[in-house]
């Protein structure tokens, strides 16, 4: 009988706590994060048309730009960190698909946030994998962000043409992901928000993330496309691109 009493006690204590989520819930609201891929502060990126000149004097036109954003978190002025539920925190940003550029996040605790953090790519190194990593497969597959000879994601797909000064136009292809367990190109960045993000009940706050396309190949590391126009599973240049991605974003 003791055992039965014990079980009933446990269950009753759970019953009393299981269905009252609303009474002591933290107040939450929504945030809209917009990714704005740009040539410069003054010039928007247009696929197939707008060009920029890199430090190696190559004129570059972007035809395709996609990247994965994951593990979003918000950091308050008092240091409190809110991690968006991992399961729902995987997105493909695709310049060609305007609907992909805005992420609508809900359930963010109200407060004043001064920083935003996110991963570029997918953190495949953590064992065991969380469900988000695996349930992201169909979405990534549809966007062409999944390899089919390796079990992993392309973190960024950046393709277009480059023309060296006085030279002829040629295509370039940059696909960066992690290389098995030998090279992890996943990056997590934290960005200060130019203006404090006030999340309050009843309205949707907005964050604008600007991505400078040129920085992908021309930041900490300057990549000369004439020397290396095909960066896929490239153990030298893929990490250089991944490092550049860390300084390609800013947030307002």
């Amino acid at each position: 009988m003791k055992k039965i009493t014990y079980i009933f006690t446990i269950v009753l204590s759970i019953l009393t706590s299981s269905c009252n989520d609303d009474s002591n819930a933290v107040e939450t609201s929504a945030v809209e994060i917009t990714f704005d891929n740009r040539i410069s502060a003054n010039q928007d990126l247009n696929l197939g048309t707008t060009a920029f000149i890199n430090q190696n004097n190559e004129s570059i036109v972007t035809n395709e730009l996609k990247y994965i954003i994951s593990n979003i978190r918000f950091i308050q002025d008092n240091g409190t960190i809110f991690e968006y539920p991992k399961e729902e925190s995987y997105f493909v940003i695709n310049e060609a698909d305007p609907s992909s550029l805005t992420l609508n996040l809900t359930g963010i605790p109200v407060g004043n946030y001064t920083q935003i953090g996110f991963g570029i790519g997918v953190d495949q190194s953590k064992y065991p994998l969380d469900g988000g990593v695996m349930n992201f497969i169909p979405k990534a597959e549809e966007a062409g962000m999944l390899w089919n000879w390796a079990a992993g994601y392309k973190f960024i797909k950046f393709e277009g043409t480059f023309t060296p000064q006085g030279g002829t136009e040629s295509p370039f292809v940059i696909h960066v992901g992690s290389h098995g367990q030998t090279l992890d190109n996943y990056k997590f960045i934290t960005l200060p928000l130019e203006n404090t993000l006030n999340i309050a009940t009843g309205n949707t706050a907005t964050v604008n993330v600007q991505t400078l396309v040129q920085n992908i190949i021309d930041a900490t590391n300057q990549i000369k496309l004439e020397d290396t126009s095909d960066i896929q599973v490239d153990p030298v240049n893929a990490p250089r691109v991944a490092t550049n991605l860390e300084s390609s974003f800013s947030a307002q």
Binding site: Q124, P128, L129, E141, N148
Partner: peptide, 25 residues
């Protein structure tokens, strides 16, 4: 070693065009 976790390995044969050539969707 193209799959670093058993849970992810079937992605390769299911999606590869010379194997099962299908999408998860």
């Amino acid at each position: 070693g193209a799959a670093i976790h058993l849970d992810m390995q079937p992605i390769i044969p299911i999606t590869n065009e010379v194997e099962m050539n299908e999408t998860f969707t």
